[in-house]
Each structure stands twice: as C-alpha cells, then as structure tokens.
Design a protein around this nucleic acid. Structure first.
Length: 856
RNA sequence: GCCGGAGUGGCGGAAUUGGCAGACGCGCACGACUCAAAAUCGUGUUCCCAACGGGAAUGAGGGUUCAAUUCCCUCCUUCGGCACCA
C-alpha cells in the first residue's frame, strides 16, 4: 500500500536540533534517495547558517587549506572538480579533527582569453569575466564545498589589483624591478611577450596557445628573481613532492665553476670573461668561441673577416627565429681574425663565432677545450683547430691530440698544465673535484679568475602588451625618468573605453588620453607605462588577499596574516611547478626581505593532483569532443555521487581517463548507504542460531578498523582507498544487519561513525542521514571519531602455510598464539602433512600475524 | 642525450616493514524478481591444464632471500621536464 507522498516527505524531514531519544520508534522509511532535493536543502541551510565561515579563533589550532584558484573560463570543468573535491574533503576532515580551517576560493580573473574573445565579439573583458565568475560560483556551490565565500578574492577587481600594483612598487623600491632592452620571447598569436617559463617544448611554443614564439628586441620590465636562485633551491622545512622540487631544481639549474678573464689582442685589448665548469682544463683551451650576437664581435673582427662574420651573424639571426636546430646538427662557425691570450699559459688563441654558443647563458662566450668537450672537439675537427689533451688516465702514456677520436671526459690526472701537472681529476663537479679545487685556488692567487656560479634560471619578465591585466604603475617623465605612481593614486585603473585592435601593442597605448599623466616628481607632463603585468603576478599573492579581501589599509590585514599564514596545505596541478609555484616562492621571499611578510616559505605542504583525461585517454578538449561536463553529472546523479566517484576512480596524484560507466559504482554505493540507513529493519528477526555476540564484536571490529584506515588515508591524501574502505564496511554492515545486529548498540555506533566518515566525502547525504539518526545539526561540526584500538584486535587469525614458497594450507590460530604454538599447528595441518611426507623439514619461519613458511 | 614518474586481470585500481597478488569498483556471465525490460538483489569472474588437484603470472631478463609488485643489476615501453648550458 503506497504511502501518501506528503506523509513520506514528513517521514524523512530531519529534526535538526532536538535529538530523538534512541528508544523512540521511527516510522519505516522507504522513500528513495533524491539527491536533488537533499543537496539543495542543505546547501541553502549551510549558507544561511554561515556554517563554513572561518574566523580567527585563538583557542583553536588554525589550518589554512588552499586549492589553486581557477581562471574564470565560464564553465566549471570536471578537472576543477577533480582538483577541488578531494581538497575540500580533506579540509572538512581537518575541521572535524578540531582545527579551525580556512578553505577559501577566488578567481584568477585577468588574462588573455577574455581579451581575445573581446576582439572577436566586442564584449568587454570585464563584463564577460564577471559574468563567467557569477556562473562558476553557482556551479561551485553545487559541489557542496566548504568554501568560505566571505573571503572570495577576484584578481581583476580594482580593490585587488590596487595591491598587485602596490606590490610591484614595493619590489621596485627594493631594487628588484628593472627595465631592460633585450631579445624577449614573443608569441605572435597572443601578441605579447612571454616569460621564459611560458615557452614550452622543442619548438619553443607558447604555453597558452601553442604558437611557436619568436624573438623581439623590446624594452621590458623584469623582476630580479635570480637574486633568490640559491634560496629557491633550498626546500628545507617544506613538505613538497620530490617531483616538484626536482623540476624547480632543474629549472634553476645551478652550475658551479669559474669565471676566467681572457684579454683580446687588439688596440684596446678588451677583456672578455668566460664561464666554465671545467677550469681544470684551462691549459687545453686552444681557441675561443663567441656567440654570434655577442656585442664585442663587431669590435674585434678584423677587416678581412668582416664580410664572413656579418654573413654568419645574419644567418644565425634568421635561424634563431626558427630554432637553432637540433643538438646533433653539424657545428658551424667563422673566424673573426682576432686572437685572445690564454691567461694560464699566455698562448695566443683564435677567436671564432659559432651558433652553438648562446648569448643567453653564461657570458655568451666560451673557452674551447676540444680535448675534453665533445662540442669543442667536433668544432676543432671540422675547422682543423689544435687539440691539446690536459687530462689523461693515470699511468697512461701521453695522449696525442692529433690522433684523438673523441673528447676525453673521464677521470685521471692533469698534464700539460704547468705546476698543476699530476693533480688528480675525478668526475665530480665543483670543488669536490680535486683538480677543480686546485685550479680555483690557483686562479684566485694569480688574479686571473674567480670561483663562480651560473644559473639557467632567468629574471622574470613581467610586461605584457595586453589590456586585460593589472597596469604596471609606473610613469615616465622626460626629465626624471621612470617613477612609481604615488600610493595615494593607486590603483591605476584600466580605462573601460578601449579598442581591441590586435596590433602587438598594448591597447592602453592606443587609448587617446589614458596614458597622459603628470610626473610624480616635477608635476610636468609624463606618460604612463601602457603594458600590463603577467597574470602570474596576480596569483603570486592571492593566498594573502583571501585573508581579508575587503581590507583597505594594505594588501591584507596583519592580524589575519599572523593567525592564518603560512598555508598549511596547498593543492593543485603539477603543471605549475616552474611557473606559479616558483613565482610565488620568489614573491614571498622578496616580500619577506621588504618586511611585508614573515617566514621563508608561503606554503608548508604541497600536494599535486593528476589530470582527468577524456574517455578516449586523450586530454579533454572541446575540439576533440571528449569533455565531461560536471553539471550534467550532478543533475543525473547528485553532487555526492560525483564527489565520491572523483575520489574513488583514480589515484589522486596520478589521474586517469574518465569512465562514464564506472561512476555507476559510486552512485550505487551512495544509494546503498541510503538504503542501509533508511530501510533500517529494527524490527527484523533476530537470528537465534548465530552467536549475536560474535556478530556484534565483528561489526565493531570492522568499524574501528575502517575508521583507522580512513583516518590514515585522509592524512596521506589516499582518497580512492577511503571510498573502497567505506564500501567494504557497508557490505559488512549489510551482513551484520542480515545477521540480526540492527538493534544493538554496536549497530548504532556503526551508523554514527559511518556518517561521520562519509561527511567529508559526501557532505549532503551525510547531513541528511545525521538528521535522520536524530542527531543534532550539523554533522560537519562533529569531531572526528576516535579509533578504539582494542576493538580492532582479532581473536583468531588465519595464517597461510607455505612450503618452499607455495601456499599449501591455512591454519586458524588464536591471535595471541606463541610462535611455537603456531609452528606446531602449521606442521600438524593436513595440507602440510601431505606435502611433508618423507621429506625433511629444514627450517620453519613464523612471520607473526602474516604467515608460516616451511623450507624442505 | 640527461633528470624524474609510471608499467599489476577485459578496465580503473588495491596490497603497513619484503610475508596469502588482484581489496574495492566497473564490465561481463549466470540466477532471483518481472508478462518483459530497466532498476534492485544474489552467485561467479587473472590465465592455463576437461576436472580432482595442480601449474603459471605484477613490462622483459637476471640477482639477493625461506619469501620480491616491494630491494639490487641490465634492458624495454610510456608519460612529463630539460637539452649545443660551456
């Protein structure tokens, strides 16, 4: 007989505040699970109650959980869910552990896509961006995350970018921002410059749009991030994944060596520095090679070589634009006609130019030691330059440069090197190599060179020739040069009436009036900087703006800073290893030195999630049509099921292709939990055959074992096994209920702990079931249950018995059985006796609680 | 070339310290319910030998060990990063 729908609704309406006495009989509940209404109901209530508002509470330990903020593309992608849901679950877990948790969200709202779209359809980037944000906010609410929306920060909001500008000025004042004319990477599609980090791959393409970049000589703003290179290599005190640390270390690529001065034989005798990691091979330097772009080349080239050098330079310049080609490309170069003096032995050595020497690394010039460097060897062979071995394996007769077939890079002793002959050479780098140490000391004494460190890491190029970014708050006066905009004139606001002509120049430059201003020094006419900042500047400090997004006296409220910082756990994709994650560390250190923030690192713990791929195993993209839309899934299954599946279907840090069928498993789990609770057969037949004591004990054991496992997995970010463990426990609970345990205290405890364990994963259904159990609102303010270790202990254990490594039988022994007891039980078991017949037992190994291994 | 990650059933994945390989789930098969289907529930599901019983198996090959997905060596595949870096 169907129950009238109104009564059904009444039956499940939770009683939020008043606890129903356990004895009171609840009406039988058979309404099916309806995520749509449950989720809406609780989301509204949580919001109305400000359940996730985090405020400073000095009586509690704080926990700042941060997940990377999205760009407001307009639609929340399944990738966002994949990044945010487990982070949310863990933040919720930490909250239940008793921490005062801050879990904010915001938008990285400046950037190219909105501007490119504006060029196409004329919709203002501001309008589009804030529309997109509104839409994504709604989508994020459907996720049921515990974001504290009172702390939301949007980088394109003038109240935000005022401080982005202010930070630029602070770095400028600290001497960390400078302007430089140089050949910078330019994306012809995005019509802007790019930082070195934003140029990817063999073909050096734009990280954003994939277009191969070109070089352009431009006057641009840089941050002196290289000043912090050494400190950025130090990861002491932070718990970051080894992969990220390795990527950053390789990116910075510190190399130790020496800078050595060579003088050029000419009228002015200019001195040229070279960087080498092998100063111990100095005596073998038989020529020098300059990069074709080296400024000195023009000066030193002799008239008779002029034409050849000019031709080569022109050719190299053309090639730079395409690419200087593969490593195995044949070496080319031309002689400049000039000579330098090798300072260690006064030998006159020729100076060549070749495109295998890069202007951007070291000093743009090298000493060439063909005997001990493969590239120099190849070059010397091709152009018939002298090869003088200065290191050879110990005890070997002297090598002959003319007959060498390859550069020698092994260990040995120094030869042909004057007073340092006989010094041992190994393959270590820097001072760990005795030969290098000896030469460094010798160079220092003689004043020819000095110990030096070189990095591949470059200063951060900040300028972007685009409109939709934070203006660079600098003004140029004919008389007083560049000066920062005074603080009381911040923010420099973006004008709204701009034209979107893609010209390669900032639209701000084309605005008729915006750039005209007055000089902060003399009050005379001056011009604003019309470039805007790289958006990585905005995201380098958003974790600080979250602390007090409405604060007006500074970028953040110091009281909030002191309580919440540093970020305890930061989660996000690994693709930012050498970009955002490196910038934000640099930024923090620079601000620390400016006295604005404290501590050496902004984020104590970092964890990376992997990527959700399309069902075809490819990266999701609109063009491939393999994009999974979370909204559709939420409508179909409910947010809780989507959350559960996202946490279940892959190892979080690995990611995996999406599987539309696989989600059914998570959906079934959620439904079966619902049924387990709401279809509670408190009136079911008690099983008289079974020892109910045992059933209850087993139930309680499983509950606490699961709790222990789930707790550990939350700590370790192992989200997929949290769900498996909960599934397993649910299966056990069904069996226990079948066995008649559903009226017991153990059963009630199981239900309660189960809801609490679910709460971080599936917050809505957990809240609903919590209310259904008659518990006081809210499950999300409950404390995480404690494991009863005694309850997890097994009475008896089953041990496999191996004979020569193969399982032959299983024995059941009391948990506290001694080794001897286990041994004799194993030897007495039927399956073992059969195999032992006529054989001699050589050894019996008892691995307590694991197995018995018999060797015959 | 260098640096790092990964390789386990049809699929996603699990496996405290070296201790029963394949938890949990998807899929599939069979059964129950149904007029039927869906949903739901139950049972089974690494492979091979017909079975009883065995045997093989965690990318390949070797090693250490009573015992290896786990430790060591060589190699292969794949993903990511860097790359004429002096």
């Amino acid at each position: 007989m169907p129950v009238p729908s109104e009564e059904k609704a009444k039956a499940i309406t939770p009683v939020p505040v008043k606890e129903i006495p356990a004895s009171e009989e609840r009406p039988r509940q058979d309404k099916s699970y309806n995520p749509g209404s449950i989720e809406k109901k609780w989301q509204d209530k949580w919001e109305a109650d400000q359940l996730y508002r985090s405020v400073i509470d000095h009586s509690k330990q704080k926990y700042y959980a941060l997940t990377m903020l999205p760009y407001p593309s307009g639609d929340l992608h399944i990738g966002h869910w994949y990044a945010m849901t487990p982070s949310d679950a863990r933040a919720r877990y930490m909250r239940m552990k008793g921490y005062n948790v801050l879990f904010p969200m915001g938008f990285d709202a400046f950037g190219l896509p909105a501007e490119n779209a504006a060029i196409k359809d004329g919709i203002h980037p501001m309008k589009r961006t804030f529309q997109n944000i509104a839409r994504m906010r709604t989508q994020m609410r459907s996720m049921g995350a515990m974001f504290d929306w009172e702390r939301e920060a949007v980088s394109a909001d003038p109240a935000y970018y005022k401080w982005t500008e202010w930070f630029f000025i602070q770095l400028y004042k600290a001497g960390l921002a400078y302007r430089k004319m140089s050949a910078v990477d330019w994306c012809p599609n995005c019509n802007t410059t790019l930082a070195r980090e934003q140029v990817w791959g063999d073909d050096r393409h734009c990280e954003r749009c994939g277009t191969p970049v070109i070089k352009k000589d431009l006057d641009q703003w840089f941050f002196k991030s290289t000043k912090y290179a050494d400190e950025l290599l130090n990861f002491d005190g932070i718990d970051w994944p080894q992969t990220v640390k390795t990527l950053q270390t390789n990116w910075i690529d510190r190399s130790e060596g020496a800078e050595v001065q060579f003088s050029v034989v000419s009228d002015q005798s200019p001195v040229i520095s070279v960087f080498t990691t092998r100063p111990d091979t100095l005596w073998g330097a038989t020529f020098m090679v300059f990069s074709p772009e080296h400024p000195l080349v023009e000066k030193i080239t002799t008239p008779e070589n002029k034409q050849a050098v000019e031709d080569y330079k022109a050719q190299a310049a053309r090639q730079t634009e395409i690419q200087r080609g593969a490593m195995d490309k044949e070496k080319t170069g031309v002689f400049t006609g000039a000579y330098a003096i090798n300072p260690v032995n006064q030998e006159r050595i020729p100076i060549w130019i070749a495109d295998y020497v890069m202007m951007s690394y070291g000093t743009g010039a090298i000493m060439a030691v063909p005997a001990h460097d493969e590239r120099d060897f190849a070059f010397a062979k091709k152009y018939d330059l002298p090869i003088i071995p200065v290191i050879q394996p110990e005890g070997q007769s002297e090598a002959d440069g003319t007959t060498m077939e390859a550069a020698f890079i092994g260990s040995g002793v120094m030869v042909n090197s004057g007073m340092l002959n006989g010094t041992k050479v190994n393959t270590e780098k820097g001072r760990k190599n005795p030969s290098i140490a000896a030469v460094l000391d010798w160079l220092g004494e003689k004043g020819i060179g000095r110990e030096s460190v070189n990095y591949r890491y470059r200063d951060w190029l900040i300028s972007r020739q685009r409109y939709w970014g934070a203006p660079i708050p600098m003004v140029k006066c004919e008389i007083h040069g560049w000066n920062p905009v005074p603080d009381d004139q911040l923010p420099v606001l973006l004008p709204e009436d701009v034209e979107w002509r893609p010209t390669g120049e900032s639209p701000l430059k084309l605005h008729p009036t915006w750039k005209h201003t007055t000089c902060p020094v003399c009050g005379g006419a001056a011009i604003r900087e019309t470039d805007t900042m790289d958006t990585f500047m905005c995201s380098s400090w958003y974790h600080l703006r979250y602390l007090s997004p409405k604060y007006d006296l500074g970028p953040f409220d110091p009281a909030e800073y002191d309580y919440w910082m540093p970020v305890d756990t930061y989660t996000g994709g690994i693709e930012h290893a050498t970009m955002h994650l490196l910038y934000t560390r640099f930024f923090h250190k620079a601000l620390r030195d400016a006295g604005i923030v404290k501590g050496n690192e902004p984020m104590t713990q970092l964890r990376n999630q992997g990527m959700v791929l399309g069902e075809d195993g490819d990266k999701m993209s609109k063009s491939k049509g393999n994009v999974i839309a979370p909204d559709i899934l939420v409508n179909k299954y409910g947010a809780d099921s989507v959350r559960a599946y996202i946490m279940f279907f892959a190892r979080w840090e690995m990611g995996a292709p999406w599987d539309s069928q696989g989600i059914e498993g998570a959906v079934r789990w959620v439904k079966r939990v619902w049924t387990l609770f709401t279809d509670s057969p408190t009136d079911s037949v008690t099983d008289s055959r079974m020892g109910t004591d045992e059933v209850r004990k087993n139930l309680r054991r499983k509950v606490h074992q699961t709790l222990r496992k789930v707790t550990r997995d939350f700590e370790n970010f192992e989200f997929n096994t949290i769900i498996s463990s909960l599934m397993e426990l649910m299966n056990e609970m069904y069996k226990a209920r079948e066995a008649g345990a559903a009226g017991s205290d153990e059963w009630k405890e199981a239900l309660e702990i189960y809801v609490k364990m679910m709460a971080p994963v599936t917050p809505h259904i957990a809240e609903e079931l919590w209310a259904y159990l008659g518990k006081p609102y809210s499950v999300h303010t409950q404390l995480w249950p404690a494991v009863d270790e005694a309850a997890t202990k097994e009475d008896s254990i089953e041990l496999p018995v191996q004979i020569n490594g193969k399982v032959r039988d299983r024995i059941v022994v009391p948990a506290e059985a001694t080794e001897d007891e286990i041994k004799s039980a194993a030897l007495a078991s039927a399956g073992v006796i059969k195999f032992l017949e006529g054989k001699e037992v050589r050894k019996v190994i008892v691995a307590k609680g694991r197995l018995v291994s018999i060797v015959i």
